[in-house]
Simulated assay, not measured.
Amino acid sequence: MKKDTLKYIIFLVLGLYSTQSFACDCDCDGDCSFSSVSTGGLVALVKVIEYSEFLEFEDDGKLKKMPLAMKVEVIKKYKGEDTRKTIQIWGDNGMLCRPYTDNFKIGNHYLIAPNKIWNDSENGKKGDYDFFACEVGFLDVDLKKKMVYGAYAKNINEISFSKIETILSK
Rank of each mutant, 00 (worst) to 15 (best):
I156W: 10
V46E: 04
G40L: 03
S169E: 13
I167Y: 15
E135Q: 11
K126Y: 01
G30Q: 06
I156F: 05
E165T: 03
L111E: 02
I10L: 14
F132G: 03
L143N: 08
E56W: 04
F57H: 13
Y152F: 15
D92T: 14
N115R: 10
I49S: 08
T86F: 13
V148I: 09
N157D: 12
S52R: 14
V141N: 01
S35I: 14
G91K: 09
R98I: 04
Y110Q: 08
L63C: 04
K126E: 11
D60T: 07
D130C: 06
D142F: 06
D29I: 06
G107T: 09
P114K: 04
I106D: 01
Y129T: 05
V141C: 01
C32L: 03
D142T: 07
D102R: 11
N157I: 05
C32P: 06
I159T: 12
D102H: 12
V74A: 10
G107I: 11
K7A: 15
C32V: 08
T86P: 00
K144E: 15
D27L: 12
D31A: 04
Y110K: 07
D130M: 08
I87G: 10
Y152D: 06
Y110G: 08
V141R: 01
D130K: 10
P99E: 07
Y149M: 12
K47P: 07
T5Y: 08
C28G: 08
V141L: 00
S169H: 05
D128P: 04
F57E: 13
K145Y: 00
C134F: 11
K154I: 10
I156Q: 11
G61M: 02
T83H: 06
D128I: 05
N157L: 07
D25H: 14
L42S: 06
V43D: 07
D60I: 11
I49Q: 09
T86K: 13
D59I: 11
P67H: 04
K154Y: 13
R98A: 07
V37R: 06
S21L: 14
E81N: 14
L96S: 09
F131A: 08
V13K: 01
V43T: 09
G91N: 11
L96G: 05
G91P: 12
K3C: 13
V48Y: 06
D29C: 02
F11N: 08
S18I: 11
D29V: 08
D102G: 02
E81K: 13
L55Y: 12
C28A: 12
F132V: 07
K154V: 12
S121T: 13
D102C: 03
M95P: 00
S160A: 12
G61V: 02
G107R: 12
E165W: 01
T19R: 05
N155P: 01
Y8G: 08
D4P: 00
